[in-house]
């Protein structure tokens, strides 16, 4: 009888243990309610971190931030939490705070990948503060810790090098990235770097190989136009720009425009010297909440002209 009772109890326990996957499917509101209940009973840093993640998933970044600060204050030596807090500060446009946290987190990072990830956050914080030289140094430290890197790292470092005018380094870095990751975005970035570095023939070779394979050509026509302008061939450059503009106008959604298509329109205007149109497109980008790095870059180009 006693054995039977034990078996029944065990079966019940196993049945209840099967619930987590059901409970895990609650919506976020109810997950939050449950976490609130648990935290009211007994608040722990782990629960606060979980609630921060839930708030983040709900888009409530202020609440996520408060909980993360509480969690990291209680357990300051948790690297993952510190890095998460750093990311939140970056998203909230507080790069100095993000940098302080990343510098602290570096002391907690035990293995090479952790140190590399932390250096990347340091680099982003520096870059967001406009300090591109120390940002580049931080990127290089990240790659030293983890030479294989990640696609995003190569792209971010490339942008930093571009801002510093170090086009040869940028090209070398992107070529190295392409060896690790034969990724189309890295290839597109390499072509931009070649054009910026006035290596127009090499850029045109890649562009002319790409264009026949493309259904939508506008982005690459703009690259070709830039290369041709570098070569003082404005006539064919402007033909490419006009073709690109026609294609973009057919595709861009007026209610919810793709910010990169709008940015391409602004680039076309800048290259053709239509400053008024360029300003209008930049304003449209701001109206549709395009990231600052896009509008900032275009405004810099506008200023140069």
């Amino acid at each position: 009888m006693r054995l039977l009772s034990y078996i029944i109890c065990l079966a019940c326990i196993l049945w209840v243990l099967s619930f987590p996957h059901v409970c895990a499917h609650q919506d976020l509101r109810h997950s939050l309610e449950e976490l609130n209940e648990h935290i009211l009973e007994k608040s722990t840093p782990e629960l606060l971190f979980q609630r921060a993640q839930t708030y983040k998933a709900m888009g409530k970044l202020n609440n996520a931030f408060k909980d993360l600060v509480s969690a990291t204050t209680a357990k300051p030596n948790n690297l993952a939490w510190q890095l998460e807090l750093c990311r939140l500060e970056l998203v909230s446009h507080h790069p100095e705070k993000a940098l302080r946290i990343a510098n602290f987190a570096l002391k907690l990072a035990k293995d090479r990948l952790d140190r590399a990830e932390t250096h990347i956050l340091r680099a982003q914080a520096y870059q967001a503060s406009g300090k591109n030289q120390p940002a580049l140094h931080a990127y290089q430290l990240a790659f030293k810790e983890s030479p294989a890197g990640k696609i995003d790292w190569f792209l971010m470092r490339s942008e930093c090098q571009r801002l510093l005018g170090r086009h040869d380094e940028q090209i070398r870095g992107l070529r190295s990235g392409l060896k690790q990751f034969p990724d189309s975005i890295l290839k597109a970035q390499l072509v931009e770097a070649l054009i910026d570095g006035k290596k127009n023939l090499e850029a045109l070779k890649i562009i002319n190989n790409e264009l026949p394979t493309l259904r939508f050509k506008s982005a690459w026509l703009i690259k070709r136009a830039r290369a041709k302008i570098n070569q003082n061939d404005k006539t064919t450059a402007f033909e490419d720009l006009y073709t690109a503009l026609m294609e973009i106008n057919e595709r861009v959604n007026p209610d919810k425009p793709d910010p990169l298509l709008l940015a391409d329109k602004a680039k076309i205007s800048l290259l053709t010297g239509d400053m008024a149109a360029a300003r209008m497109h930049i304003e449209q980008l701001k109206k549709h909440n395009a990231p600052k790095w896009i509008t900032h870059r275009l405004e810099q180009e506008l200023t140069k002209k």
């Binding site: 189309s184 975005i185 597109a188 493309l214 939508f216 050509k217 982005a219 990169l260």
Partner: peptide, 8 residues
């Protein structure tokens, strides 16, 4: 960005 390239 990859998605755009891929669909293009």
């Amino acid at each position: 960005k990859w998605l755009r390239e891929d669909l293009a």
